[in-house]
Amino acid sequence: MLPGLAEESADWGGRLEAAVAGLRVVRAESLGAAAEVIGAADAAYGVLPAELLERAERLRWLQAPQAGPAPEFYYPALVEHPVVVTNMRDTYTDHVAAHTLAMVLAMARGLPRYVRDQQTATWAPDWDPGSVLALGEASALVVGAGAVGAEVGRLLSEFGVAVTGVDARITQAPKGFVAMRPVDELDELLPTADIVVLTVPHTPATEGMIDAARLKLFKPTALFVNVGRGPTVRLDDLAESRLGGIALDVFETEPLPSAHPLWSRPDVLITPHVAGAGPHAAERRFAVLLENTRRFLAGDPLINQVDKAQRF
């Protein structure tokens, strides 16, 4: 029984029942409706508030509808509960990686400046060699070498960038990386990087990991990109920093307040949390749900399991 399918997945219940013999799916249209059926549910898809968890007498699996749900998804009672939580990670890796590369390339070639000049019909070519970052001579630090980070590093390496990864769990260098380093070496690595890309999830350990102290360790010419989660970077500290370029798709506060100084900085490239946009997203999420449903009924290990205390 899978109560609580999201609106985008209105037909998923029927598709699951057709694909998996012996499965019964209940779509709960409201919190009240979910409360009536959750007690008999073995599994659920969606967000499970505390008042529903209290009624979930049989629940053994909860499939989160996102790769990185909001922090409040993992409230203390859910963390302590024996229910296994899985998420939707690696369903839009290619989209986020392509978006990241577009940001890096735009900054490396000074395109944000020329886009601004275009708005005022200003012809101002910059032939200063220092205005361009030669990627074949550059080094990058990819902080977070999971699915997205690994693909970002691979793409950067195709342009000749020497890519080093930093991760709390991953020790083996993904394709295209020259090395992997533990998180406790981040401070000594930051001053060496021409490009710093942040792809880490929002966890208790990563919240505010890029702050004023760490920003002072960056090269003054470094390019910084955040496509992971907004709360990992202190925006006010970033607004006061001086770097070669800043590209952000996620923000500590969303939407980014219209009066925030980052909007008007000429060295900042902003996109409104759209790095994951692209085709096939719903079908990819359904594929994860279908695979885990089959595994759940067969008693096999589920994919995309989450460490609830760490939120990833």
Rank of each mutant, 00 (worst) to 15 (best):
S139Y: 00
E254I: 01
A239V: 07
R58V: 06
L111G: 09
A138K: 13
L269D: 02
V148Y: 00
A98T: 04
G245M: 06
W12N: 10
A44R: 04
N226E: 00
P272N: 07
W127Y: 14
P255A: 00
V142M: 01
A43Y: 00
A64S: 15
L235I: 14
P65L: 02
G230V: 08
L5G: 12
S9F: 13
E158L: 15
F177Y: 08
Y114D: 10
G22V: 09
P266C: 03
D184N: 14
V288H: 02
P301M: 03
P191I: 02
P82K: 01
L48V: 11
R58T: 12
T221N: 06
P69N: 02
R242V: 07
P257H: 02
F296Q: 05
T271A: 07
D237A: 12
A168V: 14
A41M: 08
H95T: 13
L190Q: 08
A121R: 12
S9W: 05
L189G: 11
G22F: 05
G4Y: 01
A140S: 12
E36L: 12
A213W: 09
P191A: 03
V115C: 11
L223W: 14
V84H: 02
P49I: 05
I270K: 11
S258Y: 07
V227Y: 12
S139F: 00
P182Q: 01
D90K: 08
L105I: 07
R24N: 15
T171G: 06
A150Q: 11
A56S: 04
P220Q: 06
A213S: 11
G146P: 02
V20W: 00
A309S: 15
P201D: 03
V79G: 05
F286Y: 07
G13E: 10
G46L: 00
G144L: 14
A309T: 15
L5C: 04
V166D: 00
L297Q: 07
D90Q: 13
D126W: 02
R24A: 12
L235Y: 13
R15A: 09
A19D: 04
D237F: 01
G136Y: 05
K175G: 13
G299W: 06
R169A: 14
L133V: 15
H273C: 02
K308V: 06
L101N: 04
L156P: 00
T221G: 09
G153N: 08
A67L: 05
A145E: 00
D211R: 12
A281I: 15
T93L: 04
L111S: 08
R242H: 13
A222V: 04
P112E: 10
T293S: 03
E54K: 14
L133G: 10
H95Q: 15
A222N: 10
R24V: 15
G130Q: 12
D237C: 08
Y75H: 15
A150V: 10
A77C: 11
H81V: 14
E188G: 11
P69D: 00
I303E: 11
F286A: 13
G39S: 06
M88F: 03
K175Y: 00
P112T: 10
R311V: 02
L53P: 13
D184E: 14
A239R: 11
A64H: 09
Y92W: 06
A173S: 12
N292G: 01
P49Y: 00
L190I: 15
L2W: 04
A213P: 02
T164C: 07
E137L: 11
W61V: 01
D184W: 14
D11G: 10
A134N: 11
P174A: 03
H273F: 08
P220N: 08
L256A: 04
Q63T: 03
L155Q: 13
A298H: 08
